[in-house]
Amino acid sequence: MTAIRATNLSKRYGGTAAVADLSFDVEPGRVTGFLGPNGAGKSTTMRMILGLDRPSGGSVLVDGRPYAELRHPLRKVGALLDAKAVHGGRSAHNHLLAIAQSNGIPAGRVREVLEIVGLREVAKRRVGGFSLGMAQRLGIAAALLGDPEILLFDEPVNGLDPDGILWIRTLMRKLAAEGRTVFVSSHLMSEMAQTADHLIVIGKGRLIADTSVQEFIGRSSQGYVRVRSPRLAEVAELVKVGELHPDHLRVTAMSTLEIGALTARAGIPLEELTFVQPSLEAAYMELTKDSLEFSA
């Protein structure tokens, strides 16, 4: 069964449409990246999935039901929204214990998740003194408490050091490999490229793309061949289809092999002949360009 299904989901705050007519499915067994520039409506969508914000229109179902109808929701869905949203006066252990008790999760599980996220040593310390990285781990521990099949992470790597980022990435891949549904938001394409199998891209609250990562790169822009030569003008004349820049020629309609053969026959020396793969970042920028321009 589809883990999360949004149907014509909309949310207005006063005059602004934070989410507009958004429909998508999130499937189990893979990491689904939820990508969009800041202010695109990712957090708002996640809050609606979790029953925190009420949609202005449309609906979103978790495992076929509205979130609020789940009996012990944390055993089905775990979520990390804002790692700093904890009472600083409570110890990590008591923070997790209160959450566990509310869903009938045995207290022993608290120790397990603290172990998993590497916070066992600081279990008795007040969370007010935690660094952002530790708070992030605590938030993930809370998400894992109920051993849920569906996991939501809102910008989990924000403000983390490279070690922490790698740790979260590995964890998400592992959770998906176990057959769970992992839905993770980010405003950074590069981040998603390394973690996600599938992408749901939004801009200004609207769906821009719902595709695999591979397809996404291919669809948005093609690569090109960059040619540099002391006799660049002659090369340009020879290949005809190139686009001449001050220090190089950009060719999209021919392969490196074809260009190389052509220039070799004409005896023109080359400094560089490279196929330039479009970066994911570039592909993403191009796709969300319009939604950014509008908001500017």
Partner: peptide, 13 residues
């Protein structure tokens, strides 16, 4: 603290 969201995720009723 924002902990109300955690509470409501745990007990949505």
């Amino acid at each position: 603290t924002g902990g109300i969201r955690t509470s409501l995720m745990a007990v949505p009723q």
